[in-house]
């Protein structure tokens, strides 16, 4: 019974990892662009949820949606004001620009929200379901379910729709895409919006379960990079699998080996896998 609880907990955690990583893989895969500010987008999603709950008394549907919209808008603004300009510059400028953006967002959050940890006041997702001795925290359950649905829809959007084809076309050959009548600028703006929006929802969902402060983006940013690398660059489905695997391994090794060993196990397996399969689980070689 305890074993089952450990496994379920790990999978729920993994689903959340997958959700906030899918946005990162979108930008990485579509644009060959590393967004170091992704963890900060998650953090801002958490604060948007907080403000909606505190100011407007909104429920999970309201703050989830608000975080998605606010972060989608932020993603678009970031693209138009920053990314569009540095993307033609040298690789180093691209890396440093989002790194700078991450610091800017983090310390702006410190300035506005202070360094204190906050958590969402009591909300409708606070309870726990008891399924024959297995405890399922509602917040994590809803978070995990939404994460899986969103990650799958993002995957379908990219592989089954014309918007997805256009996004892929731009990432494969910008010039050729333009000749086909696709506006790369608009497509990439959309990709940034979707990526940040997914991070926003992920943040809002995690806010129901975790306490956080403006520096939380560091922790989540790192996990997202590992998930994306393990899943395969640019593969949304890969990041779903990778998120679930990492969550599961973390939970199992923390329970049976001890909490301080869980990251050694996860990253040891991670390095081993990249050694055997450098493109990640679902990446194209």
């Amino acid at each position: 019974m305890v074993a089952l609880q450990v496994i379920v907990g790990g999978l729920l955690l993994g689903a959340i990892y997958a959700l906030f990583s899918s946005g990162l893989t979108l930008i990485w895969g579509m644009m060959n662009f590393i967004n170091f500010a992704h963890g900060e987008f998650v953090m801002l999603g958490m604060y948007v949820a907080f403000l909606v709950v505190v100011w407007a008394g909104g429920g999970p549907a309201a703050f989830g949606l608000a975080a998605a919209i606010a972060l989608f808008a932020l993603g678009v603004v970031v693209y138009l004001s920053l990314i569009r300009h540095v993307i033609r510059g040298p690789m180093l400028a691209q890396i440093l620009s989002t790194f700078g953006l991450a610091l800017l967002l983090r310390y702006t959050a410190f300035w506005i929200f202070s360094a204190n940890f906050v958590s969402l006041p009591q909300n409708s997702l606070a309870g726990t379901l008891n399924l024959g001795g297995i405890f399922l925290p509602v917040a994590q359950l809803v978070g995990g379910a939404v994460a899986i649905v969103l990650t799958l829809s993002l995957h379908l959007l990219l592989t089954r729709t014309s918007v997805g084809s256009k996004l892929l076309a731009v990432s494969e050959d910008r010039a050729a895409a333009m000749l086909m009548g696709i506006r790369p600028d608009r497509m990439q703006m959309l990709a940034w919006g979707l990526s940040a929006g997914a991070a926003g929802i992920a943040g809002a969902l995690m806010a129901t379960a975790y306490p956080w402060s403006p520096s939380v983006g560091e922790t989540f940013g790192l996990i997202a990079f590992v998930v994306v690398a393990l899943g395969g660059f640019g593969s949304v489905l890969g990041s779903l699998y990778a998120g679930l695997i990492i969550g599961l391994i973390q939970a199992m090794s923390a329970f049976w080996l001890g909490a301080i060993y869980k990251d050694i196990v996860v990253y040891g397996l991670f390095v081993a896998l990249l050694w055997l399969r450098p493109q990640g689980l679902m990446g194209k070689a």
């Binding site: 609880q5 955690l13 922790t219 989540f220 923390a254 001890g258 909490a259």
Partner: peptide
Amino acid sequence: RIPYSASSTDVSAQVLQLKQ
């Protein structure tokens, strides 16, 4: 005795160890 890293994002495994 359960040592853990303070930057953990999830502590369910540790709580289950306590419960046992």
